[in-house]
Amino acid sequence: MRRTLLLAGAVLACATAATILGTAPTGDEILFPHERHKKAEVDCLVCHEPVYDAKTLEGEFLPKESKCLECHKQKKVDGQCNFCHLDVQHAATWPKRAPRLKMDHSAHIERVKEDCSVCHSRLSEPRQYAPITDGHAACMKCHEHAQQYADARCDTCHVDLSSYPLMPVSEVSHQGDFLRRHASVARSSQQSCASCHDQNFCLDCHAKTTMVPIETKLVDRPDRRFIHRQDFLGRHSVDARGDPASCQRCHSTSFCETCHERSHVSAGTSSLNPHPPGWGLPGSGAFHGDAARRNIQSCASCHDQGDASNCVSCHRVGGIGGDPHPAGFRSRHNLSEAQSDGRCAACHR
């Protein structure tokens, strides 16, 4: 009970913190025409002076109102707030945005001989949100950055790639049934994956602790390829039979057992026998030995009680069930192993 209360408290505290930390933007925007100022031959550093010595993008590089008023004071005196502000009712300063790049302006300004346009090939205009550089092309004009890109050292420049809404189409294509294919790629390219996806993204599917299946959490994304979509429950035994290892990658046998117990389809929890006729009859077509060989996970989902599993009572040495091992098992194992292996000891006492 105490653990539950502690957990509930922690969840509530974190949710509250998340709410408090949030910052809702206002509808205002500063209407600054770069082109007009450029024509007026206003040097970039007049307004963006702190950039000159900036080693990171953490600082305040956009001018305060006082800087604007050095030229436009009369507009304010006349009450023409909309000369600069889009939403006069909610007039605000430039919104503070978290840097997404690691960028040392002080080092670059000397290299480009104070010509900002070397990198900033275009500038923003009111109500136009075009990027102010050519992106990668701007950086990779320099050999050093081209090499970093080739070496996949993205974190040299990027703080976090996860916020970029780009989808790889050439280097690591996600087209088609990438869901099935991703395991092979991810196991040798986890650094590449981590460039765009944080761990919580992977945990949506890979966590054993997850809140609800991803198909429930993102029920409004029918375009995504999810494994357990809609009525997966009804056909899960067929899918499990087709590729048992795919279940075992994420679910242990105890996962199946827990659910079957709760659903009253497990041994000992129901008087209903879920097995078909012929289950105990060799050669019947529904013999349990053949079924177990093909999909032992489905047996384990109800009968995995370790040494006390009901298989042991019949299949132990001398039992009526005989030798249950698959063909070739004896050629790889000898009886001396049975003395030291806890699993073997259940039957080979």
């Binding site: 048992p244 046998t253 177990a292 060989r293 093909r294 999909n295 032992i296 996970q297 047996c299 384990a300 995995d304 370790g306 040494d307 599993s309 298989c311 042991v312 249950p324 091992h325 698959p326 098992f329 699993r343 259940a346």
Partner: peptide, 8 residues
Amino acid sequence: SIFAVFSE
């Protein structure tokens, strides 16, 4: 798991 010795 004891089931590891039964499976395909």
